[in-house]
Design a protein around this nucleic acid. Structure first.
Lengths: 213, 213
DNA sequence: TAGATTGTTAATCGATTAACAATC
DNA sequence: TAGATTGTTAATCGATTAACAATC
């Protein structure tokens, strides 16, 4: 059997990560009414070389103009399309503690196209509670909500111990992607995508950096 | 003038990031009473090769034992020391909205050595409010709190527009490292370390991955 | 036109993997 | 001892940077 390559489909993930940054900046420039941005400006803003920026942008179907740079509004559109920021992503949040409810009610997410369709917990004391626009439901009702609304994204905001169980429920309910905000590592079938934004890990990256100044 | 290398001090940041993952797993194994872990087990858990794991661990002052692997408890100790997880980090949170208060009251952080000493906002309506153990203070009092308590870490949890201002206040107050949870990019002097754990960016990485399955 | 900035190729650099001797 | 797993060197692979022709 030939060795299967890990994931050689689209762009390298390092490029995708930088594109999310470019998008954030370009949206900003757009609001400020800027019309053009050069690879050099983008590079300086993120501490990269202009070469890297041009390489990154060569991955997407978009061209700059020799003397002027990139047209902000158009670049914004293309990046939004490439990253999926132009469509609405139905999402659910697992974990109705402080963090989960904060996320469920975090206007920024909805403003950016992530429509939270459900907030779930397993603790009977929390079930039924009204949190902003959402009522906390039991995890056993998740599958129903996911199917009903065509939910594709699950956000895990539970304590470490419950993370794998939350992931299992999300997978069983049928989501395609999971954002893991918990402290733990989770394992899922290979057709489900996972991104971990573990705050504690980030904080430890930070403390390491602070210590080794 | 000779070209200054970006940051060639310690370990590559990719290694540091993986070490934070190893620590999370090893702490878990420790709780479960496991005594030994091999490079192979660590690798499988994170989808790496055992070679990468051994290379990573060769960066830290710690040795495994030929036939058995790595001693869980000792590895845990060393990783904690290397990453700074063994000491208490005084921290402040800027932004007393949903996210900021969730973080300030997030038990997981305190349990892991991040002691939140202050919660700040600029909105008069929020100032003085009691949020769990903390009372919301005005940003202008931050410098005092930071100096008084020897705060080293600032966590930014404000809306996009206020992020740079929050960063400026933190820098002025004298923190050494910033965890940026806001949507925006921030710029700070080069002696201040920044890690961005922007949820929206992570979500866009995720949606891109989901789209290109 | 002249000059600035792109897109792209080739060179460099760094990170991952393979391989294997050392060793418990 | 024999076998498993480490630590480390060398080979491979991929990502970043430099350079420059194309071009607006």
């Amino acid at each position: 059997m030939p060795r299967r390559k890990q994931i050689t489909n689209g762009m390298p993930s390092t490029v995708v990560r930088r594109l999310t940054g470019y998008l954030a900046l370009v949206q900003d420039l757009c609001l400020r009414g800027e019309e053009w941005v050069s690879s050099m400006e983008l590079a300086e803003h993120f501490g990269l070389t202009s070469s890297t920026v041009r390489q990154d942008l060569s991955h997407i179907d978009f061209s700059g103009i020799s003397k002027k740079g990139y047209e902000v509004a158009k670049l914004c559109d293309v990046l939004r399309r490439v990253l999926g920021a132009d469509k609405e992503w139905k999402s659910v949040v697992v974990g109705a503690g402080n963090l989960g409810t904060a996320i469920a009610n975090h206007g920024d997410l909805e403003r950016r196209g992530f429509l939270i369709c459900g907030l779930f917990d397993i603790d009977e004391k929390r079930i039924g509670k009204q949190e902003g626009r959402l009522k906390v439901s039991h995890i056993r009702d998740m599958e129903h909500v996911v199917k009903e609304n065509g939910v594709e994204i699950g956000i895990i905001a539970v304590p470490a111990k419950a993370a794998q169980q939350a992931a299992d429920s999300l997978v069983k309910a049928g989501v395609s992607g999971i954002l893991n905000l918990s402290v733990s590592h989770i394992s899922v079938p290979s057709d489900v995508r996972v991104i971990s934004a573990r705050m504690v890990s980030s904080l430890l990256e930070l403390t390491h950096a602070v210590m080794s100044r």
